[in-house]
Computed example of a mutant assay.
Amino acid sequence: MDTLTTSGLSGRMTQPPILVTGGTGKVGARIVARLKRENMAVRVGSRSGAPRFDWTDPSTWDAALEGSRRVFIVPHDGELLTRPFVRRAKELGVERVVLLSGRGVDVPGYAGDNDAVGKTHVDGEDAVRSCGLAWTILRPGWFAQNFSEGFFRAAVLAGELRLPAGDGAASFVDAEDIAAVAVAALTEDGHVGQTYELSGPRALSIGEALALISEATGRTVRYTPLTAEEFIAQLVAEGWPRPDAGSYADAVAPIRRGMDEHVSDGVQRALGRPPRDFADFVKDATAVGAWQGQGRPRDQDQPA
């Protein structure tokens, strides 16, 4: 088995550090925590990290990559930076990369022709597959944590989530599962050359997901479906730039069109167990107070 060595009675880490870009985000922070629990040396790649890592400043890349042999890549959405980053990583001795991509990359019509995030993933996947390094690609669907940490949370707290999702459903994936698969791909044999599409075990409509949150928290949260035009107009009225509002509406469109409801087998294949159910995510999030506090009009995060 391919392992990263430790030595000493205390299990002191002697292996090269694993670089986790996006190391403070929904997935990256969970990967960092899991690696630390396994006594792995880890380097958090972020603008607040030491050394500092900034996707848009290539002069910061070398220090972050120095000494690393394995890297988890959260791409910089909207820009084609994964390819030059992987090229530089290889030059500096990196041997294995695990890329966070997205569902629908290889599905015609999933994303719009001008979808910048989609282009980032398409180019990033090609860069990783052709780089000559050991690679694994993760393609998660919609994160369950969008309801508790991301751009749905403010609406949940306010009691109403308004989206152009129609009556479509999504097989929301728990970020803990994404992190578990990433850690396995970074530290174990058997995952090189694999593309894992990750989802939860069942599809839920937005209304069904909110009903589970309402039941667990005692907080009434309703879903109001909008047309794409109504949704864009609402965001613009709240101060969003129209192109950003349009991108958000486009990101939700696959749910409305029934393209996010299928269940994928990536978690089972990678970990040998089924994925966590959305109800389990809700139970855990409620226990840690994820939905305590007051709502704001809307978080301006990007969909994930």
Rank of each mutant, 00 (worst) to 15 (best):
D62N: 09
D62L: 07
A63M: 01
L65P: 10
E66F: 06
E66N: 08
S68A: 15
S68N: 07
R69F: 00
R70F: 01
V71A: 04
F72S: 12
I73L: 13
V74L: 15
P75K: 05
H76C: 14
D77K: 07
G78N: 07
G78L: 13
E79M: 11
E79D: 11
L80Y: 12
L81G: 05
L81M: 04
R83M: 08
R83S: 10
P84L: 10
P84T: 12
F85S: 07
F85C: 09
V86Y: 02
V86E: 01
R87S: 06
R88D: 03
A89V: 03
A89I: 03
E91S: 08
L92S: 10
G93T: 13
V94L: 00
E95W: 04
E95H: 02
R96A: 06
V97W: 00
V97L: 00
V97K: 07
V97F: 04
L99I: 09
L99H: 14
L100Y: 05
S101K: 01
G102N: 09
G102Y: 06
V105Y: 12
V105Q: 11
D106W: 06
D106M: 04
V107K: 08
P108N: 02
P108R: 11
P108G: 03
G109F: 03
Y110D: 02
Y110L: 05
A111W: 12
G112M: 09
D113K: 09
D113V: 03
D113A: 04
D113L: 00
N114G: 11
N114W: 09
D115A: 13
A116Q: 14
V117H: 15
V122E: 10
D123R: 14
G124E: 07
G124A: 15
G124D: 06
G124N: 12
E125N: 06
E125L: 06
E125Y: 13
V128K: 06
R129P: 02
C131E: 09
G132L: 08
G132I: 13
A134M: 11
W135V: 10
W135F: 14
T136Q: 08
I137A: 02
L138S: 02
L138Y: 02
L138V: 08
R139K: 15
R139T: 13
R139G: 10
R139L: 12
R139I: 11
P140I: 02
G141I: 10
W142E: 05
W142F: 12
W142D: 05
F143E: 02
Q145I: 00
N146Y: 11
N146V: 08
F147P: 04
F147S: 03
S148K: 07
S148C: 00
G150E: 04
F151K: 06
F151P: 05
R153N: 05
R153H: 08
R153L: 10
A155Y: 04
V156E: 00
L157E: 08
G159S: 12
G159E: 12
E160T: 10
L161N: 03
L161F: 02
L163D: 02
